[in-house]
């Protein structure tokens, strides 16, 4: 009996590992190509390179301009993340803990727009940025998202609603105003929810393509998604250097995933379980 159970377990593990290997093979192949020398790229199909070279990364870093794209992406997505955390935390707290006329109406307005496709807001938003003289600038990349999203406010509101009412009452007796209570008591308590929103926002804007594509023309302003998409129509691509560029583009998010996987899982589950 005991043996049969461990045997089944082993089989299960082997099956999952097999599926995972197949599932992640494209990324392993990408890594492998990025480490190969040019003649091996077009001749061998071995996953482990015969001779490992880092020169593709050097080419991607300087010749392909990935260094500039990376810095821009860090700057833009980082700013958006900070803005979103601050604005959504405040709004989520107000919606979840405070009382004011029109609160529920405004909140339903937020929820109502969550199904609206991005294509609907694209052109007027572009026009607004154009009129603000922010087309082709970092400000134009950041501004529309800096004040947070309906999703973020929703997520934080659900968190603040789970905090016990007594907490607010107790802080009021101590003479603190509503804003002070948020700043000193509630915001520090919201770290897990903030981390979830933070990583979800960061990934979304790190990977975002359409808005940066529309807003930026100058090579010096391009983010990774736009800069890399330029390669799609090239003839005679240096695949090993391009795969190195792709590795650089996804590596920061991979590192964050491994350190903060808990928050990503929470972020994905939030929408589903919160019904």
């Amino acid at each position: 009996m005991e043996n049969k159970v461990t045997y089944k377990r082993l089989l299960l593990y082997l099956m999952i590992i097999g599926i995972l290997f197949l599932y992640l093979f494209p990324l392993l192949w990408q890594l492998s190509t990025s480490l190969k020398e040019s003649d091996e790229v077009f001749s061998g199909y071995n996953l482990i390179p015969k001779k490992v070279t880092w020169s593709n990364y050097k080419i991607a870093w300087s010749q392909f301009n990935v260094k500039k794209y990376l810095v821009n992406t860090i700057f833009v997505s980082g700013l958006i993340m900070v803005g979103t955390i601050i604005c959504c935390s405040m709004a989520g707290y107000a919606f979840g803990q405070l009382k004011f006329p029109g609160r529920d109406f405004l909140f339903f307005l937020y929820l109502g727009t969550m199904m609206v496709p991005g294509a609907v807001t694209l052109i007027p938003s572009y026009y607004i940025i154009l009129r603000l003289n922010m087309a082709n600038s970092f400000a134009g990349l950041v501004l529309p998202f800096f004040f947070g999203s309906a999703f973020g406010t929703f997520l934080l509101r659900q968190f603040y609603m789970t905090l016990p009412k007594d907490l607010y009452e107790a802080a009021t007796i101590d003479g603190a105003g509503s804003f002070q209570i948020w700043l000193k008591v509630m915001f520090p308590l919201s770290k897990p929810a903030v981390a979830t929103l933070g990583v979800m926002t960061l990934v979304q804007h790190w990977n975002s393509l359409l808005w940066p594509l529309v807003i930026t023309q100058s090579p010096s302003l391009k983010v990774l998604a736009v800069g890399l998409s330029d390669f799609r129509l090239f003839r005679n691509i240096q695949w090993n250097s391009l795969m190195a560029a792709v590795m650089i583009a996804i590596l920061p998010m991979l590192i964050i995933l491994f350190f903060a996987q808990k928050f990503f899982v929470k972020g994905i589950q939030f929408s589903g379980v919160n019904r």
């Binding site: 992640l24 393509l209 990774l224 583009a249």
Partner: peptide, 16 residues
């Protein structure tokens, strides 16, 4: 491991 492809930018995995 299963969410790795989701976390990668579509442009990057598209090129891969």
């Amino acid at each position: 491991l299963f969410i790795i492809p989701w976390i990668c930018m579509s442009v990057a995995v598209g090129l891969t």
